Structures are given as C-alpha cells and as structure tokens.
Computed example of a mutant assay.
Amino acid sequence: MSIQPLQALPIEQLRRRRSVKWRAYPEDVLPLFVAETDYPLAPAVTRVLADAVALGDTGYTPYDPGIRDAYAGFARRRFGWELDPSGIRTTGDVIMGVVELLRRVVGPGDRVIVTPPVYPPFFEAVPEAGGVLEPVPLIETDAGFELDLLGVEAAFAGGARVILLCNPHNPTGTVHSAPALRELADIAAGFGAAVISDEIHAPLTRPGVTYTPFLAASATAARVGFAVTSASKAFNLAGLKCALIVTAHEDTAAVVRRLPYEVHLRTGLFGALAGVAAFSADSDAWLDSLIAAIGANQLLLAELLAEHLPAARFRIPDAGYLAWVDLSALGWGDDPGRRILAEARVALHRGPKFGEGGDGHVRINVGCAPEVLTDAVRRIGALL
C-alpha cells in the first residue's frame, strides 16, 4: 500500500507563526531558507504538549524524562541499531551538545576537522569550544559527495584531534556509507582522535537508502565516537530545546557523565516530552508520510529546475528536506541568493555561508507545499 504524503498547512495559516521562518522577512517574500517545515505536528506530539499546557506542566526537566528509552526504541525500529539507553544524555540543542563535547576532547588551539560545504554553525561552534578549524572539503564525484578520507588522515597526521562529522550531511543530504564510516573510525583510532557526529537529519533518510549511525558502523566507531541528535528537524521542534548526546562505549560514556549537570538542565521540558512522543511508534506513520511528501517535493524541484533554470545543477539528496543547488552557470556571482532575495523575493540559505564549495550555490528548503515550491522556482526563473 502506498503512503499518502503529508499535506502542508495553508500559507495564510503559516504566516501567523512567530518563528524565524515567518518573521525574518516581509510578507512578499517566500521563506525557503531556515530548516523549519510547514506541516502540522505529529498528532502524538500535539497531544502531549496540549496535555502539558492544560496541567501547567512547565517546570524543570527531570533527569530521565523518558526520551532515552524512546530514542533507543526509535533507533531499533528505524535503523536496526541496538542502543543502550544508559549511554544517552540530554541538552538543549545539537550545537550545545557539540560544543560541550569539543570542550572535553580538545584543548585550546587544537585543530578540529570540518568537511565543507557544511552547516554554518559548525564554523562558530569550534572556536567557541577553543578549537581551530581545519577544513577538509567533501569530494564531489559523478555518484555524489563523499568524505575525503585521505585528506582527513593527513589532517590527523598533522595534529588535528577530532573531526566534526555531519551524517546525513547538511547541506548536500549525503548519507555516508558504512564502509566510509568504518574507515573514518579506523583512521581516527590510529591517531588517538575522536569523532563527533551530528545526526539530526537521520530520521529523514529516504526509502531505498541505508542509513548507518556512526556509532553503529563498527566496534572502533563506538569506541572513538560521540553522536548528537534530536527530533527537532524531522518533527519541527527546534523551539522546544531538546537534543541527545549519544555514546555506545564505556570510555565515551564516562566523558559524557563528567559533563556538568547544567548541560542537562538546558533541556526544555516541552522538548523532552515532545521528543518522547516523536520517537514513539505512534509517530512512525506520520514520519513515513512526511518522508513521502519530502520525496515528492525533491522530485518536483528537479522538474522545476529543468524547466525554469536548466543550467542549475541539483542531485536528489539521500536524506532530509534541504536541497543543495549549484547556480554557478547562471553568472549570478558567488552569492546568487542575494540577488534572488532582492529581485525574486525568495529567501534561500546562501551558499557562501557553508564554507569552501558553497560559492555559486543556494540551499532550498522543500519542506513546504508543492504550490509554494513551484511559485518560488518560477520567481527565480523569471530573473533569466
């Protein structure tokens, strides 16, 4: 039986939202930039939040609000990963978790590998933790993007202490293969280095693509790795502030246990409650419908670009509702998103912010109604 795609909310209703997506620009701008989606919440999430409001349940977050077991169940059902819940701790969001882990595994001035083009907050998280950025860009091949493992090995040999991995990768949507993750773990272990993996987009892996959590790639990966994830991207819960720091080995779990209790207290109670509902089996059908809607929109985007911007280069991503589009051939300069906003009144995430490999690119959020996506691409195409 085919899965019915989730329907986005009407744009008139969305414009009543007070999140950054709908407040950053005037109403004549179509916002397809920040990673928020336009769909109704999963029913289980709506119920638990409504119950909490009715109860006035707005206090501090308990140490174990149930999300550790909920995520372990989700990982078992969705990824085939048997995970010990005791190796999980919560904090406010993924970047908070990344910064706190970096503070424990690098010293002042130590180099941290990042793999641009990559999520822009990585470029701020590393210096916030006292590290120094060491870019090792992804390699683009005919088959897609992949890690430059030789470059990573050279960076570790030169003294880098950790790699900040993005799996699935933002903005390209690449799901790194299990063999590549195993090789990365072996390289890191050989230099006594660590891997911190941002896995926030993993629940949105499209059908037919096998997603491997870094910690599940091998025993070595479990020993050298930390993962940070959240329900916030798939279930549109960013404002509720709950992320998971995940370990799968006693050595890394010991590092996380030494984090100050304040790191946990940054977890929002609504975020934890919503996360439990999101990761429960009750939300699986909703998530499948969301993935179907995103997949249809990624195909629609490919068709729209072929019709209205035929010089654009776009590859259907392995995961997520973000689309990485190369507009270099249009001659709109290194930052085409600037012109698109000014003249087409469409807000996209601008490529140069993603570091090396971002010039000439834009990132488009397709987590919206097909009509909105169609309007946006037609507006951009009219600039030709």
Rank of each mutant, 00 (worst) to 15 (best):
Pro213Asp: 05
Tyr60Gly: 13
Thr172Tyr: 06
Arg89Gln: 11
Phe279Glu: 11
Ser86Gln: 08
Glu356Gln: 13
Gln13Ala: 15
Leu269Lys: 13
Ile380Tyr: 03
Ala221Leu: 09
Ala281Trp: 02
Glu303Leu: 06
Asp186Met: 03
Ala274Thr: 00
Gly173Gln: 05
Val195Asp: 04
Arg15Lys: 14
Ala278Asp: 01
Val366Ala: 10
His308Phe: 05
Val112His: 12
Val53Met: 11
Val377Pro: 01
His169Lys: 07
Ser86Gly: 07
Glu134Phe: 13
Pro120Phe: 09
Ile200Pro: 00
Ala285Phe: 12
Thr374Lys: 13
Pro352Ile: 05
Ser328Tyr: 00
Asp38Thr: 05
Asp359Met: 06
Ala216Tyr: 11
Val99Ile: 15
Ala178Ile: 13
His176Arg: 04
Ser280Leu: 09
Gly80Arg: 13
Phe279Val: 07
Arg206His: 12
Asp284Gln: 06
Leu265Asp: 00
Pro31Leu: 12
Lys241Tyr: 15
Asn170His: 06
Val263Gly: 15
Asp28Lys: 09
Leu290Tyr: 04
Val136Tyr: 06
Ala157Pro: 03
Thr58Asn: 08
Val48Asp: 02
Leu6Ile: 09
Pro168Leu: 05
Glu128Leu: 15
Gly208Leu: 09
Lys21Ser: 12
Tyr25Leu: 15
Arg315Val: 09
Gly333Leu: 11
Ala143Phe: 07
Asp64Thr: 07
Val29Ser: 02
Pro135Arg: 12
Gly333Trp: 01
Lys353Glu: 06
Arg339Phe: 00
Ile380Gln: 00
Ala221Thr: 07
Ala376Pro: 02
